[in-house]
Computed example of a mutant assay.
Amino acid sequence: MNHLKESELKNLTHTLHKEKQELEHHFNLQKDDESGSLNQSLSDATGELSTYDNHPADVGTETFERGRDLALEEKMTNDLSQVNQALELIDQGRYGTCRICGMDIPFERLEALPYTMYCVDHTPRNQNSEDRPIEEEVMTPPPSGAGEKRQHNHGKFDDANAWESVEEYGTSNSAAMATKRDVKDYQEGM
Score class of each variant (00 low, 15 high):
residue 71 A to S: 12
residue 156 K to M: 10
residue 73 E to G: 00
residue 103 M to R: 15
residue 21 Q to I: 12
residue 178 A to D: 03
residue 53 D to Y: 09
residue 92 Q to R: 11
residue 179 T to H: 12
residue 157 F to A: 14
residue 112 A to T: 01
residue 88 E to I: 11
residue 47 G to K: 05
residue 51 T to I: 12
residue 69 D to A: 12
residue 83 V to H: 01
residue 69 D to V: 05
residue 41 S to A: 04
residue 184 K to Y: 08
residue 148 E to N: 10
residue 23 L to R: 03
residue 162 A to E: 11
residue 86 A to T: 00
residue 189 G to F: 00
residue 116 T to R: 06
residue 117 M to S: 07
residue 77 T to H: 09
residue 8 E to M: 05
residue 154 H to V: 13
residue 167 E to S: 13
residue 94 R to G: 12
residue 36 G to Y: 04
residue 106 P to M: 00
residue 31 K to W: 12
residue 89 L to T: 08
residue 178 A to S: 10
residue 91 D to E: 15
residue 36 G to C: 07
residue 33 D to N: 14
residue 83 V to Y: 04
residue 65 E to H: 10
residue 20 K to D: 03
residue 1 M to A: 14
residue 95 Y to S: 04
residue 128 N to V: 14
residue 93 G to K: 02
residue 59 V to P: 02
residue 20 K to Q: 10
residue 157 F to P: 08
residue 105 I to T: 02
residue 162 A to P: 01
residue 113 L to F: 07
residue 66 R to F: 04
residue 187 Q to N: 10
residue 142 P to H: 06
residue 129 S to L: 15
residue 151 Q to V: 14
residue 144 S to E: 15
residue 107 F to G: 02
residue 85 Q to R: 11
residue 129 S to N: 11
residue 188 E to V: 01
residue 69 D to Q: 11
residue 24 E to M: 13
residue 94 R to A: 13
residue 170 G to Y: 01
residue 148 E to Y: 14
residue 57 A to E: 09
residue 34 E to A: 13
residue 135 E to V: 09
residue 123 T to F: 02
residue 150 R to C: 11
residue 43 S to R: 06
residue 94 R to E: 13
residue 89 L to C: 10
residue 27 F to V: 06
residue 189 G to D: 00
residue 161 N to P: 03
residue 42 L to I: 09
residue 47 G to D: 00
residue 170 G to D: 03
residue 183 V to M: 01
residue 33 D to P: 08
residue 100 I to K: 14
residue 68 R to H: 12
residue 140 T to M: 14
residue 163 W to R: 09
residue 110 L to N: 00
residue 124 P to Q: 08
residue 178 A to Y: 04
residue 122 H to A: 06
residue 23 L to H: 02
residue 62 E to N: 09
residue 71 A to C: 08
residue 33 D to T: 08
residue 168 E to Y: 10
residue 115 Y to K: 02
residue 13 T to H: 04
residue 156 K to A: 08
residue 1 M to C: 11
residue 18 K to H: 13
residue 119 C to P: 00
residue 25 H to A: 13
residue 73 E to C: 09
residue 64 F to C: 11
residue 107 F to R: 05
residue 157 F to E: 14
residue 151 Q to A: 15
residue 96 G to L: 01
residue 27 F to C: 06
residue 72 L to D: 10
residue 180 K to T: 09
residue 68 R to S: 08
residue 57 A to R: 10
